[in-house]
Design a protein around this nucleic acid. Structure first.
Length: 708
RNA sequence: GCGCCCGUAGCUCAGCUGGAUAGAGCGACUGACUACGAAUCAGUAGGCCGGGAGUUCGAAUCUCUCCGGGCGCACCA
């Protein structure tokens, strides 16, 4: 609503400027004034023109206002301050439009005319070797929310979760299973605990036991791996005091490397263990994310990128385009390298600053594989994965890559725009891939490659102490401490979710005594997830979240439950009033509709005769109008959110709308309102707000409970 | 050494392409449940927007510089 009006005003001002001064402006600056006294939309364009025209800004503003005349949807324009052009909306008309908004319309129409854009969003991408932690939650929640925003804006979106199942992190767990003393498990003899059948049995044991005791998360395979991962990292370091120990350390590091190479090669016992463990852990990651309403379409795995020789296909193209070249001298002698972003390719012989893609022993580095993978994403590789279904969701299946897949499968890759949700620490490697694409002449692909970067989630020293970790005096002084899977230092995702649900459940039990067990549990889960998702979304991407249970477990103030509570309140109003938002909006439309037809013949006095406009103007009604106006800003916020890749904008919008509603709720009593026409108006106000809140929450992945 | 990010109220953060009196939440202190449920609302206190210089009619926002904090910069993956 507001978005359309802004665009219309911008065009109108542009036309006037072109006509009056023969100046072509690319875009007219428009902003929201700090106070409704200044109108609903303002433009400081006169300041900009003042220099070019050598004229006082106030005079220019006046000339533009005169030139504008009447613009549909606006009640008038005025010049204020040193030269602002302030626009006032036709409030009654705006309210009519806002009330009539069809939420389905959000799937914007113009996109279809240009052909639906196809985006590929990759998020989560947790190494399948340990339980997910709160840092991974931020990634997945940001990514999932962005997917929802894109879909609301009419994009076709494929959601991918990249699985690095052949990396050192998985190798570390295999090493642990093959070489460490493991927990005693019934049916496994200590002597052959490291054999393949025993490891298989161990994984199966955890699958069965964790199903039998769903409350005991420590039985879950991903939790078991969390501990093993920390243990094996201690094991690698051994006791580095004596020479014998140093030899031992070297030996263990060698075991690690050998294990990694076996996994990469495939078709052997080590690789089989890796496959078992990474698949089992992956499945639990999907379960954990599903608790938050997060689903995926496709899981490309590194093992297939290796076995299907993606790199070999990419290498040819890289060499042909000259992006990849060999150096013969310097520290990179014998390597195939690529110039770094921002640097010049130096001589062909020595290039110490270049990025190594192929090592002197002929093996490819991580960046090389990543370039190949991204060529596939844009459909530029000329090679594809095999596919088979892996995980079943309520509405669709999630597919996984495989060497020889099913004949009948959906098509992934070949997107026009990609978004990689990866933390800020990886901006260098991401830049390398973009650099390669550009160097190969794929400028369009490089331009539509977005590193959706975000800062990490760390723990406050206080939180770390609460969890029982020993922290140094040095760390205590820091604002936050980085999470480390290697050290087993962090808050696991499922633990946090459990804690949140326990806290909300206690509240719900106290409040909802009339409801049964399953209902209360459902409400508690909706609130807990709402709290968690909002918590991860309210910070803008490049601010580090210093995690603290006090903040994360809060349900008051700027939180998800605060917004959910506003929805519940509105629903209660309609329940008590024995009506529905739909009915209220229909009643409102009927009344205003009559006003429209009446006023058609006498346009000039239409506003004065519109029964509802009296409730939208005047000092005492400014807050109500502000509420309508904010409700009408949704598409504007959605557009900004997508353009900036910043879901936090929408989160803030939802909170502010809920806040303004709560204020309205305390000031005006709806059901006891005696003036029937005003009552219809107030009900319509609540109906518009609940519609917008539910929609915004939906896009944030937050459900709206029936009660709380 | 090079690159990126951050520095705004006691704490945690917003502040959109430069614009009109710098905003929230938490915490502190006052008040408001016989009401559409208080997971709420109203109010008070609290800010040389890290320091300095520059560009501009105009800077929390852009540029430079300094200070403080964080993270990257391997033939590891």
């Amino acid at each position: 609503m507001v978005l359309e009006l802004q665009k219309r005003l911008g065009e109108a001002i542009r036309a006037v400027i072109l006509k009056n001064y023969a100046l072509e402006l690319a875009n007219v600056p428009l902003e929201t004034p700090p106070d409704l006294h200044f109108g609903e939309v303002a433009s400081p364009v006169a300041f900009e023109l003042a220099r070019k025209l050598r004229k006082a800004p106030r005079l220019i503003a006046q000339e533009i206002v005169t030139g504008l005349g009447a613009v549909e949807g606006f009640a008038g324009f005025e010049v204020a301050g040193a030269g602002y052009i302030n626009a006032r909306l036709d409030r009654a008309a705006a309210a009519r439009n806002i009330a009539a908004v069809d939420t389905e319309r959000v799937r914007l129409v113009p996109r279809r005319l240009m052909g639906q854009p196809h985006a590929l969003v990759e998020h989560t991408s947790i190494n399948p070797n340990k339980a997910a932690h709160i840092g991974h939650l931020r990634n997945a929640i940001l990514g999932d929310t962005f997917v929802r925003l894109l879909r609301a804006d009419g994009y076709k979106v494929d959601v991918q979760n990249y699985i690095d199942n052949t990396g050192v992190q998985v190798a570390d767990i295999v090493v642990a299973l093959k070489h460490l003393e493991l927990d005693a498990i019934p049916g496994i003899n200590v002597r052959d605990q490291h054999t393949l059948p025993a490891i298989k049995k161990r994984i199966e044991y955890h699958e069965q036991e964790s199903r039998k005791h769903p409350d005991n998360r420590e039985l879950l395979i991903d939790y078991v791996c969390w501990r093993l991962y920390a243990q094996v990292n201690v094991w690698y370091m051994a006791l580095e005091t004596t020479e014998q120990d140093q030899a031992k350390v070297a030996e263990r590091k060698r075991i690690r490397l050998d294990t990694l190479h076996e996994i990469e090669k495939g078709n052997n016992e080590i690789a089989e263990v890796a496959e078992l463990i990474s698949t089992a852990v992956l499945r639990h990651h999907l379960e954990t994310m599903l608790r938050l309403g997060i689903e995926y379409d496709f899981l490309p795995r590194e093992s297939e990128i290796l076995h299907l020789k993606f790199w070999e296909a990419a290498r040819q193209k890289l060499e042909q385009s000259g992006v990849l070249y060999q150096v013969t001298q310097g520290k990179n002698a014998g390597c195939w390298v690529m110039k770094r972003p921002g640097s010049e390719a130096s001589t062909e012989e020595t290039d110490d600053d270049a990025k190594v893609i192929v090592r002197s022993n002929g093996t490819v580095t991580y960046v090389g594989k990543d370039i190949a993978y991204h060529l596939w994403k844009f459909g530029l590789l000329g090679r594809d994965f095999g596919y088979r279904p892996f995980f079943r969701y309520a509405g669709h299946a999630c597919w996984i890559s495989t060497e020889h897949g099913e004949a009948d499968h959906p098509h992934f890759g070949g997107a026009t725009a990609i978004y990689n949700v990866i933390d800020a620490r990886q901006s260098d490697p991401q830049a390398n891939v973009i650099q390669a694409l550009r160097g190969m002449g794929h400028a369009a692909a490089a331009d539509h490659y977005t590193h959706f970067s975000y800062e990490m989630v760390a723990l406050t020293p206080r939180c770390a102490e609460e969890l029982g970790y020993n922290i140094s005096d040095e760390d205590k002084k820091r604002p936050y401490i980085e999470i480390s899977g290697r050290k087993g230092f962090g808050v696991k995702a499922d633990d946090l979710i459990d804690k949140l649900i326990a806290a909300t459940r206690a509240e719900v039990d106290a409040r909802q005594t009339g409801r049964d067990e399953t209902e209360r549990q459902k409400i508690a889960e909706q609130i807990a997830i709402g709290a968690l998702r909002y918590f991860m979304l309210k910070y803008t991407r490049n601010s580090v979240i210093a995690f603290d249970f006090k903040d994360a477990l809060s349900f008051e103030g700027e939180t998800g439950p605060y917004i959910q509570y506003a929805v519940v309140r509105i629903r209660n109003i309609f329940r008590k009033g024995a009506t529905t938002p739909e009915a209220a909006l229909a009643g409102f439309a009927k009344q205003t509709g009559q006003q429209v037809s009446e006023s058609a013949s006498q346009r000039s006095t239409a506003a004065a005769h519109d029964g509802f406009s009296q409730y939208l103007s005047g000092e005492e009604n400014e807050d109500i109008w502000a509420l309508w106006l904010r409700a009408g800003r949704f598409s504007l916020v959605l557009e900004q959110s997508i353009a900036a890749s910043e879901p936090a904008f929408l989160a803030k919008h939802a909170f502010q709308l809920a806040q303004e509603f709560n204020n309205f709720y305390h000031k005006h009593r709806i059901l006891t309102e005696e003036d029937p026409e005003r009552k219809i108006f107030l009900l319509a106000t609540a109906a518009v707000v609940v519609r917008e809140l539910v929609q915004a929450l939906n896009l944030l992945g937050i459900e709206s409970p029936e009660a709380m």
